[in-house]
Design a protein around this nucleic acid. Structure first.
Lengths: 179, 179
DNA sequence: TAGACGTAGA
DNA sequence: TCTACGTCTA
């Protein structure tokens, strides 16, 4: 919470441990966990020019499950899946294999660790009185991806991530809070 | 920076002194300085049912001057003055004497103190290495307001605030930073 | 310059 | 549900 680092860190971030909680998306930036203020996928250009994924935030905004298993299915970005406020461009469209989606795909064969932050908006962590909406869940690898056709008939990417073994167990309990 | 207070505080906020700096708009919320995440005017319903202004953030986004004098001219909200990203509703329109604008107007005869936070986006405070984009400038009273017609031909409100005497001098120096 | 799993309050 | 002087990266 000092100045601003904003470095492209691959893998574990010094000083950040599994279970660390943060109140706002933007609090993830200065510690180096996840730089974008809204986008769910952070990525960088690798030494060979390929995009690789650095971290993802899974907040349930795209309908992805948030359990404590070691497998996470993450929906790609784009296609107007987020609840748009813009009046005109709400029409769903095909997702494209670019930017964050392309980075996640590349990370499959790169086998690089990807940080996962889970967002529990409108929920309360049992062990914490203060509002910690985002919790660092540890390092994952991207195992595979596939295409689906949403109920709206448009293309959607799904990425299957698996938590790397040997990391601290997640002991916190998530409790739904009625808004 | 603990939990969240979010109380409707009129006047000075305990623990916050003139010159205190904050990095993000949202950092102003938990300390009780200014609750809205984007809106420039915070207000509440007074005991008599009238809206009164609690605080304003002057970031220069509406073209207001930011000097160190004791008088501040603040532009009302609404009318699509902020640089809109929405594609369709960019058309400027008359500002209305409601919400924050009405609260500022009422504060004239209420004579209640209004907190002023000055935003120096894309600038650096000489005395601070870390990014402190928002600085608490102290308590002001709203002396008068008037209407203007913008270059676009639409109605705009202007509020004249005067810094209450006897508060600490502001010693920091603002230096423009090329982006 | 525009897009993105943002936020708070009315 | 929508507005609001947001904030980051590409």
């Amino acid at each position: 919470a000092t100045g601003k680092s904003r470095t492209h860190i691959i893998g574990a971030v010094p000083g950040v441990e599994v279970g660390d909680g943060f109140q706002y998306r933007m609090d993830l930036n200065p510690v180096g966990l996840h730089r974008p203020s809204q986008s769910g996928i952070d990525y960088m250009k690798d030494y060979d020019g390929e995009l690789v994924a650095l971290s993802i935030v899974s907040s349930g905004g795209y309908g992805d499950m948030l359990d404590n298993s070691d497998v996470l299915i993450y929906t790609g970005q784009g296609g107007n899946l987020g609840k748009k406020k813009g009046k005109n461009d709400n029409e769903p469209k095909d997702q494209e294999l670019v930017k964050g989606n392309l980075a996640l795909k590349n990370s499959i064969h790169k086998k690089n660790p990807v940080r996962v932050i889970k967002g529990y908006k409108n929920t309360t962590l049992k062990s914490s009185a203060a509002a910690k909406n985002y919790v660092y869940d540890g390092l994952y690898v991207v195992e595979e991806y596939w295409e689906e056709t949403g109920s709206h008939g448009k293309l959607v990417f799904k990425f299957k991530l698996r938590r790397i073994p040997g990391q601290p167990e997640r002991s916190w309990k998530v409790v739904e809070k009625k808004k």
